[in-house]
């Protein structure tokens, strides 16, 4: 049976958790403009550095992984906002001009 890629990430996260890893799940909850991944796209992150799935075209995964580690440590979920970045600035954002919201939660 085939799986939608976004659903498969939860199975991977559950598998990692069952193996004793500390895991956080990030989900795109809203998008504006030409963001690369639709709402519902997921990424799973472990404290040990494993990563599956994606929430953008690679622009914000690093920042989301950092937030995931904080959420794993604190247990507090976060709703992150990523907006348009200035092409010449180094801050984290989406070069495509889109905006996304990403929800980060710990897998208990």
């Amino acid at each position: 049976m085939s799986l939608e890629p976004s659903e498969d990430i939860l199975s991977i996260a559950a598998h990692w958790r069952a193996a004793g890893e500390d895991v956080a799940i990030a989900t795109v909850t809203e998008t504006w403009g030409s963001s690369p991944r639709p709402a519902g796209s997921r990424m799973a992150v472990t404290a040990s550095g494993k990563l599956a799935g994606s929430v953008s075209g690679g622009c914000i995964e690093g920042a989301v992984a950092d937030a995931a580690l904080a959420t794993i440590a604190s247990g507090t979920p976060q709703l992150l906002d990523f907006g348009v970045t200035n092409e010449r600035a180094w801050e984290v954002g989406l070069a495509c001009g889109g905006k996304v919201k990403v929800f980060v939660e710990r897998l208990s």
Partner: peptide, 8 residues
């Protein structure tokens, strides 16, 4: 999120 919810 809980493993039980993912199982469901």
């Amino acid at each position: 999120m809980t493993p039980a919810l993912i199982a469901a």
